[in-house]
């Protein structure tokens, strides 16, 4: 199912700018302003927006395109290009492979672990869930409920236990029972807390002390996040060597445009998007669909 059709209900007033652009006969200064506004409202940030608009203007001038549809196509192509053409599959190859989920508080790490666990179990992978969030009250309970639901073993420690050792135990358990994949949840942490970021570095190291290999460290970013998302990505990458982004809650009215800056500045691709609480609500990231949804380039979805 396409992202766009999934997001149909969420899209509303935002696209006023874009729709306005489509209704003009030729693109003028006011049109460019409207496009710029659309990008800022989608949380791309001021400097990324300025870069994108400047690049599109150059392309439009070169191709002598002043028709709205041509410009919109150029804009779409520009942003898609900036999102890069990465391999967005989640890397395996460890024995077991460990996918570590990191991020600030409340972005949806535990839920993402649960959903991804379900997808992997359905695909026939042997999955162990590691309840590495030993800080938030009842986080392990939350993951245990997911484990029951999707049919995956959950390894957890006591509240306040060392997250590194919980994840280490989960990896060893997976190795012992021959499971291929460990999905390791971690506690949410604000990236300005140095000691907690150090703890995360340790989690990352200790996860590879035994049989496993960390093949993915996934930064979970909430779509509603503004410009701080870029700082988050930078700090988490320094601490735990982030390999990809999971963009959650894209079924709301937020666009998640900060991932464009994250991709451009840090070269970290978005790999998955979360679009709801249902069983199939975690999707592989598709730049074209994402950008279409960003600009609401869909005639069927009218407010």
């Amino acid at each position: 199912m396409s992202l766009r059709s999934r997001l149909g209900r969420a899209r509303n007033a935002f696209s006023a700018q874009v729709r306005g652009v489509r209704s003009v006969s030729t693109v003028d200064a006011a049109t460019w302003d409207a496009l710029e506004e659309a990008l800022i409202l989608a949380d791309l940030g001021v400097s990324t927006t300025a870069d994108v608009i400047a690049a599109v203007r150059r392309r439009a001038d070169a191709e002598a395109g002043d028709e709205p549809d041509v410009v919109l196509d150029l804009l779409r192509a520009e942003v898609v290009e900036r999102l890069g053409s990465h391999d967005r599959s989640l890397a395996r190859g460890g024995d077991p492979s460990v996918w570590l989920f990191v991020g600030v508080n409340g972005v949806g790490k535990t839920t993402t672990v649960g959903k991804l666990g379900r997808m992997e179990v359905q695909a026939g992978t042997g999955v162990v869930l590691a309840a590495g969030d030993t800080f938030r009250a009842a986080a392990a309970d939350q993951l245990a409920l997911w484990g029951d639901e999707v049919g995956a073993a959950v390894v957890s420690g006591a509240e306040g236990a060392d997250p590194s050792s919980v994840i280490f135990d989960a990896v060893e358990h997976a190795a012992a029972v021959g499971a291929d994949l460990v999905l390791a949840d971690t506690a949410g942490r604000v990236h300005t807390r140095g000691n907690l970021m150090d703890e995360l570095s340790k989690v990352r190291r200790v996860a590879e002390k035994g049989s496993g290999t960390v093949t993915e460290t996934l930064l979970v970013i909430d779509s509603t996040t503004g410009q701080n998302g870029l700082v988050q990505a930078r700090r988490f990458t320094e601490a735990a060597d982030v390999t990809g982004v999971v963009l959650t809650k894209l079924d709301g009215s937020a666009r998640g445009g900060i991932v464009v800056a994250v991709q451009e500045e840090l070269g970290i691709p978005v790999k998955m998007v979360g679009v709801g609480e249902g069983p199939d609500d975690l999707l592989a990231f598709d730049p074209v669909e994402f950008v279409d949804a960003l600009f609401e380039l869909d005639d069927d979805v009218e407010a």
Partner: peptide, 10 residues
């Protein structure tokens, strides 16, 4: 959430 972007208004 104080980290929220433009969507806070909506």
């Amino acid at each position: 959430d104080s980290m929220m972007g433009q969507d806070a208004v909506n």
